[in-house]
Design a protein around this nucleic acid. Sequence first.
DNA 1: CAGGATCCTTTACGATACTG
DNA 2: CAGTATCGTAAAGGATCCTG
Lengths: 122, 122
Amino acid sequence: MRKKQIVNNTACCKTRIIAIKDTMEILSGKWKIHILGTLMEGGKMRFMDLLREVDGIAAKMLSKELQDMEMNHLISRTVLDTKPITVEYEITEYGQTLEPIIDEIANWGIAYRKSIYGDRKN
Amino acid sequence: MRKKQIVNNTACCKTRIIAIKDTMEILSGKWKIHILGTLMEGGKMRFMDLLREVDGIAAKMLSKELQDMEMNHLISRTVLDTKPITVEYEITEYGQTLEPIIDEIANWGIAYRKSIYGDRKN
DNA sequence: CAGGATCCTTTACGATACTG
DNA sequence: CAGTATCGTAAAGGATCCTG
């Protein structure tokens, strides 16, 4: 029960830890999950929409996080030829594979509120 | 398809966004999910164990995040009366309700590696 | 061992302009 | 509208030393 087998552990058991690290690296920062959650609800959204809906985010951060996620192919950016231009952001198919994560996060948050405020409407 | 019904949306659809916010507030920072993931694998662990297993974390951060999570009742801290003293950290029952989230994060990370390196052993 | 204290560097984040 | 630039703060990160 002490520390035997540490060497063997490295091979099999760290996989999960590394996996968590990989995922968190891609979702790094305070905002990506919020943005993704918002985009999952809202479908195609414009910069300003996101700025309004993602509570508390500043334009600089939004801009930066969107670029980040675009680079990682989690979202797509489409410039529409209007005047002034419009830009639409949308979750990619690949980005949608993150939905189970976001869902669990949302579910936990909902349960959390219930455990605090009870089932009453508050 | 434009923006009709925004008013109605606020009542029903923001629940999820707020839930995500709640959860992310409790899991805020770069390390909590890593620590939880590690504790979920390792069971009871001591400070030094965590310092070794949570890749890259500094003692200062570990200490702070552990306190944070203890305050939120996600983990428990037990001081054993040895000499020198030993301290064991463990996920609480409440903290275990986060497992579905961590699991999804780990799963995604695993799939992510596969999508990059293929099924070959790398 | 389990940490807190200190000091210093580097990112992350935020608020407020400003531009095509 | 969709951003970038600029500036300032706060938190993260690292190193080292210290204590019960």
